[in-house]
Structure formats: C-alpha cells, structure tokens
Write a protein that binds this DNA or RNA. Structure first.
Lengths: 246, 246
DNA sequence: CGGTTGATTGAGGCCCATCAATCCAGGTGG
DNA sequence: CCACCTGGATTGATGGGCCTCAATCAACCG
C-alpha cells in the first residue's frame, strides 16, 4: 500500500522458483499469503509462472480444469457466450485475484479468461491445492474468501455495469478500470477495445466509441492512446454524480 | 427425484427439531446431506425453522450476518440496489440452496433476500457451522460447492437474462422459473409481479406487461392468475428457438 | 361504495442499434 | 520510400425498440 519494502520471507534459493515465491510481490495479497514458511517450501517446485500477451487466453470455457491461477500483474477478463452466441464479459481480474476456482470441485472452467494487458500468473495445480488444504485449514478460508470476491464482483457487474443509460455504464466501467491501474506514479488505465467495451456493457461498438469521444471532449479521458489513457478522476466523479443525480 | 419414500435416518425424537431434521425432505440435496448421523445429533437444537410470506425479507443487504439459511421450499430472490437507487434482482434461490454464505467470512449480507412465494427455510447459526466445519472437512467442500453454484447463477443471469431484446429475456426468465416449479403433478410456475420482472430483466413494468400479454395470446402462458401460471413448455422452447435463431 | 394497488393498453418521443462511409495506424511488399 | 492493404475507430443518417406519460381496467378491502 504505502510503498514499503517487501521483506524476504525465505532464504532458500536452491530451486529456481524458490526465490520467486519467497519474495513474491503478491504474496501478501495472494492465496498463499497466510501460509507459514514451512508450507511454502513444499510448493515451490509445483508452481509455474506463465506470461500472456494481450488477447491471449489463459483457459477456455468448458475445458478440463487441472489448475488454478493467481494473477501477479496485469488484467484479465472473464467472458461467457450465451445460447444466442453473444459474447459477454462477466467480470475482471487483477493483481492478487485467483482464477479457476471451479477446478477445486472437479468442474470444467465456467468461463474463458482472456488477457487484457500483459499478464503474469502463477499456475497452481489442483492436486497440490487439494493436498495442501487438507493439512492447512487456513487455505479453505482463503478459497472461500476468493469465491465470495468473485461472486460479489459478478453481482456488482450486474448492478452497476448493466443498468442505466450507456453514458453512465461507460463512466462506471472507467471507475472500475481505475481500480486495476498499475501502481505506477501516474495512473494510466487500460482502455478496452470498443468491441470489448461492447461485450462488457452490452452495447454496440459505435455507441462505445461515441461515449469515449464524448468523454475525451469533456476532459474526463485525457491522453487517449490505442489501448490506454489517462483518467481525470475528479472529472469522472463529477460526471458520475451528475449521471446518478438525475 | 422419482418420488420414492424418504427413509427415516434418525429415530431420536426427544427434541422437537430432531424429527424435522432427521426426516428432512431436503437433506439429500442440502448442505448437511453428507454429514453422518452422529454429527446430525449435535445440531438439531441449534437449527430453527422459519416461514416467510411472499414479499417478506429473510435478511437485508448490509446487515450483520449471524446465520445461513437452507431453503426447504419456495422461491426467493436476491436483490441489490445500485448507486443510482435502481433495484436489481441478481439471482433466484430455491429448494436446497444455501443463502448468506458471506456469514462464514464475517461479512455483512451482500444482498437482500426476499420471499417470492411461501417459503420455508432452516436457520443455521454461523458459529455452529464454523465449529462443525473444523471437525467435518466434508462441510468445507459443500460450502465451496454452494459458492460456485451462486457464482455460476449470477454469471448466467448476466449472460442469459441481461442481453438481447425484451421478448427473449422474458422467455429466458420463464425457462428459469420452470426450474423452480414445485414438484407437483402439473407444473405451475410462480409468475412475478410486473415490477419484479422489471427488476430481474432490466425493463419497465409496461414492457413486461406487454410481453406477458403477448405470450398469453400466443399460448405460451396458459392459465395466468395473479401470481402463477401454467407454462406450455413446448411452445416456450419453440419461441426461444425462434428468438435465438434470428 | 369509494379508495387503493397493480395490470393493461395506447400514443409519442428518445435512446441506441443498424447501416454505411470515412478515417487512421500499422504492416507488407514492391 | 511509398503504394497498398487491413483492422479498428470514428462519425453521420435513419429506423426501431423500449421508455415515458397517461388513461383505463380489474381486484381487493376497509
């Protein structure tokens, strides 16, 4: 939070992954954060780091789920397709989030996870987590917490991003995206393609484009580039207030 | 499923709740279904049965969550209110569903649960479930299953009931409501008020009313009364096909 | 019986989907 | 280096679906 130094929890550098796990930057917010160092020793070798380019899928709806993933950096979108063939983003995931919880129940993935930005994840085999949760009851609590987070996120999507006029939905999306901004000095947010915005907010790419253009003119979006922009948070808050007040 | 006799799992009738729990009709589908009889003995006295009339709230968004509830019969709707003040139903719950999972994490209720029909629930104190899950690891698995169910339900709501023209959304809602129909000989479904349909499908009561009237004329809804109707499943499937195919 | 609450139906207007044209950035090959 | 192509973004014109406003109706009840 306050930019303090992350301590080196572990000093065992024999395994290449050992260092990465022990001094992992997301350990405090991630599932294994509460685990004692002894337990961490058991798992280094089973954790694999993966890197994804934008638009690349981490896993796909309906496929066998043999692993869960902790997001180390970047943003992903979880999407589904309805019976009519329409694609719809149901929530976002960022730093510290755990994806693929269904795997713990031996169910296939319930959504497709697609990288929005450059993404780093840690792959955790289902079997490892199953064994570990037997000996470490704190893990069960952590898993439940993640499940509730996911549920809450999905419900919030339904309530805040699926109602009201298109302008308000876009504003709400920008607010949510600002939560996933990299902790860099200046807060540049990831700006989805118009097609993705459509899949998130249930609108056409033309409407999404019009709203973005409009917000550019109004000074809410400042330095708009192809896939990122600078957000004027004050102007955003004001615009949201105006949209909600009426 | 096939109307067979439910066996009497327990013969201890000393406590008034003992009989109800032991021969509970939902025990097979409910959270405690996997528990051995010894464990069931410990809990009778802490479980309270509650009855709700239509439109009555089981618990409210933001309130302290000291208990979870297993639905024995009837249908409830979980609703939230967004920053603009719009009410929105985020999912339904029926026989065997577990509500108020947030309680396990010491969080306040994340939604308001309102009875749609006559409802019977069993109130399970949070503390009881916490103690029990320590000694009975199977309970954790059960809880995770419920969480995933809720998540899946919410995401499905987003994908199937929040996209496409109003006619299709109403048809999808009817299909979903048919899943909650009482296991009676003839399948009469609960028909929400037009206002509730609006909160479920993000439309006005007038639009909802027009769609219902239209489906009455087409013979999809047959014996429409104030809060229930007979559903022509064949015609519904056909209408959905037509709405999706185009 | 008047009063209230919810459902229905109609008329008009607005928001957004649709269709279409143009623009822009990046990549490719001559 | 430029012509060319391509995928995405933008902007305009038009129409339709749904919201809004309003009147009527049905059911229930004090």
């Amino acid at each position: 939070m306050t930019g303090r130094i992350i301590p080196l929890y572990r000093q065992d550098f024999t395994h290449p992954q050992a260092q990465a796990c022990a001094r992992c930057g997301v350990r405090e917010v991630a599932l294994f954060g509460a685990l004692p160092d002894e337990a961490l020793d058991q798992i280094h070798q089973h954790i694999a780091e993966e890197r994804l380019a934008p638009r690349q899928a981490l896993f796909e709806l309906g496929h066998r789920a043999d692993a869960l993933y902790t997001v180390r950096s970047g943003v992903l979108q979880l999407e589904r397709v309805n019976e009519r063939g329409d694609r719809r983003v149901v929530r976002l995931a960022g730093r510290g989030d755990l994806l693929g919880l269904e795997a713990m129940l031996l169910q296939p993935y319930g959504a497709t996870a697609v990288a929005c930005t450059q993404v780093e994840v840690c792959r955790i085999p289902r079997s490892l987590l199953q064994e570990l949760s037997a000996s470490q009851p704190s893990l069960s609590a952590g898993l439940m917490q993640r499940w509730q987070q996911a549920l809450s996120g999905s419900e919030e999507w339904l309530v805040e991003l699926s109602m009201g006029p298109s302008r308000r939905r876009v504003l709400q999306l920008l607010r949510k995206l600002s939560e996933y901004a990299e902790p860099a000095p200046l807060s540049n947010i990831w700006l989805p393609s118009r097609e993705d915005m459509g899949a998130m907010l249930n609108m056409t790419i033309e409407t999404a484009s019009r709203m973005v253009s409009s917000l550019k003119r109004e000074g809410v979006l400042l330095d708009v580039q192809s896939r990122q922009a600078c957000l004027n948070t004050a102007a955003l808050a004001e615009a949201l207030q105006a949209a909600d007040g009426d």
